[in-house]
Nucleic acid binder design. Structure first.
Lengths: 130, 130
DNA sequence: CAGGATCCTTTCAGATACTG
DNA sequence: CAGTATCTGAAAGGATCCTG
């Protein structure tokens, strides 16, 4: 209910509500396959089996579920061509494209800092089990 | 024994590789509690029970695990004061602070588009089960 | 105070078989 | 081709008890 323009509150404030919207997005963007799909769809529309072949390792089930989730959030569209055999195109919506930008910012951050992170990890893992 | 490093099969697309490193980050940032912790730690160091009280709903177990993960990634530091009773301060590292910026971009995106998303969702949920 | 160890329930995700 | 339905093992996560 609070019309907060700041999504991440301070300690002590009931921030469950304002963070909830963000968590939804991050759950979506950060889940196992959504990012791959968004990236794969960035250049243009793709068909179901194109995606399945393009994203190796994804199961049919997870591809379907992830596509449904993205579609439900309005990030992609699903277009059915009632031909025989049927053809379905998936494509990023405008909303999906706007998500691309902040997502890529995070991608760049990850790329720029992955060495530092890997270093921190291996250093942490070498710590004696105190 | 098992392949400890993620070896995503070659797809022929360069973005696959960058997504793999990114997925690690997004897994971290997008998991259930990390964002709350990073946000809560943004203003300054906090103690264990401060965090526990400040982030309503988090269990002790998940707080500990999430803190360990963030520490392992070099995003926060853990400082033990060997007093009695003991005191532990958690604080964002420089790396952690740099993550704040791209994260906030995503947070803002989420905030700006949550209405559109909610709308898309309710519209999707009203679709006849065809 | 700041956790570690354990149990136990829920959820996730892969494999498989079937359909318009 | 583009899915749906079901089963099952794996993993996440909460609750609880115990410790330096």
């Amino acid at each position: 209910m609070s019309p907060s323009h700041i999504a991440l509150p301070e300690v002590g404030k009931p921030h469950t509500e304002c963070c909830q919207a963000t968590r939804q997005i991050l759950d979506r963007v950060g889940d196992k396959w959504s990012l791959y799909l968004i990236a794969t769809l960035a250049p243009g529309p793709r068909r179901f089996n194109e995606l399945k072949r393009g994203i190796e390792g994804i199961s049919q089930r997870m591809l379907t579920l992830t596509l449904r989730g993205l579609e439900r959030d309005g990030l992609i569209t699903r277009t059915l061509f009632p031909t025989i055999p049927p053809r379905v195109d998936y494509e990023l919506t405008k909303l999906g494209h706007t998500l691309l930008k902040p997502t890529m910012a995070l991608v760049e951050w990850a790329h720029e800092n992955k060495l530092a992170i890997a270093e921190a990890q291996s250093h942490f893992d070498q710590q004696p089990t105190s």
